[in-house]
Design a protein around this nucleic acid. Structure first.
Lengths: 218, 218
DNA sequence: AAAAAGAGAATGATCGTTCATTCTTTTATG
DNA sequence: CATAAAAGAATGAACGATCATTCTCTTTTT
């Protein structure tokens, strides 16, 4: 029966919508109260469905947390890809960074990021999800830095672990910094990032830049 | 009465010891289960005292958390002071960093650090403690960077917010990186730190360094 | 004997999860 | 096309466990 298939599909769509509803509500609750502080009943209330019904879509609270971590990781992955996918020159990377900065500096994002990583320290399933994302990030960055260096004929061909680690430290430190210093001017972060990007992507230009700054006051 | 005074003092010492007992136990529990995951009964068991007795020394669970955050902040402050207090040259700073790195890379430390910052996003009292520490850190770093730059006659006199923010991003990113990538070689972190320290403390030397690396492969 | 230290059961709230039940939609049958 | 039966969606009360906190009681010290 054709009709049967259509109904099945419609059901799946609705189920997906329901799942998303739960995840959105959970995300808001977790942001306000943390993974363990938030309760299923409050999540249910926010998702506008009954407690028991959530268990049709998720086996447990932990399953919700993991699904949410995966979704957020995917978002971060997409963000980084947008930042670098079509970038071949340093200027493009910095311009992209300028546009993408608000998302990275978002306080809610930072809060859940910290929660995720804190939980990863004690839940190996969550750690596994994050570790996989970390691997993807490293690959993406390696590819980008190599590409930009090649096209701009600047810096060594081989991108070392140290270089990538420095960039990642910078990216992931943001969450803690934003939480600690929420009223710090965004342009400070942006300039810091530009400086690091320059140092990594175009060592010569960066060298001249710091030298100039040094000469200015020394 | 002289005796009375002595007894009073002895009592205080014992009370302090008790308090420390609770904090140590709480620290271990929080590390394993998070602030909200850990229970008073398990903390009490670990501290080897009854649940009710803990409430003689702390008003509530939140008070314990705050005291612990303060203690950890003080530890971090001492660590940074040890790193930089007597350092006047770049070489000393890097040597200190090499010695101090294991403490910074400690997984348990990183886990509680993340927990603290995640909690700060929803508990303003904890946020206040961390913000104060942040301010101290910034002052310390500003003083250090200025001092080293002066003695080595390298880099601009004025230490900008951007420079400090870059260093702090690096320092605080470590917690997330260690959690995500626990089996990464420590030397990678150390080298990354050295690179950033060089770039911040001795722009000229750093510039030559990157240029050399660039020349090697380009 | 007075005071402080310590223990642990009691309290009421809340937790994650399950369960019996009721609506609502789909399918099969006349 | 209408309607009975089956399936799916949704509810919220009930469960046992555990939570942070308090209270009463005993032991130890002064």
């Amino acid at each position: 029966m054709v009709r049967c298939e259509m109904v099945k599909k419609a059901r799946e769509i609705r189920a997906d919508k329901r799942r998303r509803q739960v995840l959105d509500a959970a995300s808001a609750c977790f942001r306000e109260e943390g993974f363990h502080g938030a309760s299923m009943s409050r999540i249910a209330a926010r998702a506008e469905m009954s407690v028991g019904h959530i268990y049709r879509y998720f086996d447990s609270k932990e399953t919700i947390i993991i699904a949410l971590v995966q979704r957020d990781c995917a978002k971060f992955d997409r963000w980084l890809r947008r930042m670098i996918s079509s970038a071949a020159t340093i200027e493009t990377v910095i311009a992209n960074l300028r546009r993408g900065m608000p998302w990275l500096l978002n306080r809610d994002r930072a809060a859940i990021f910290l929660e995720m990583h804190a939980e990863a320290g004690r839940n190996s399933k969550i750690a596994a999800v994050l570790t996989e994302m970390d691997h993807n990030l490293r690959c993406l960055l390696k590819e980008l830095i190599g590409r930009v260096r090649r096209t701009s004929q600047s810096g060594p061909e081989e991108v070392t672990d140290v270089t990538i680690e420095v960039v990642l430290l910078q990216l992931q430190g943001v969450a803690a910094r934003v939480t600690l210093n929420p009223n710090l001017d965004r342009s400070v972060f942006l300039e810091g990032f530009e400086r690091v990007a320059l140092a990594v992507l175009a060592p010569e230009a960066s060298a001249q830049c710091v030298l100039k700054e040094a000469g200015k006051a020394g």
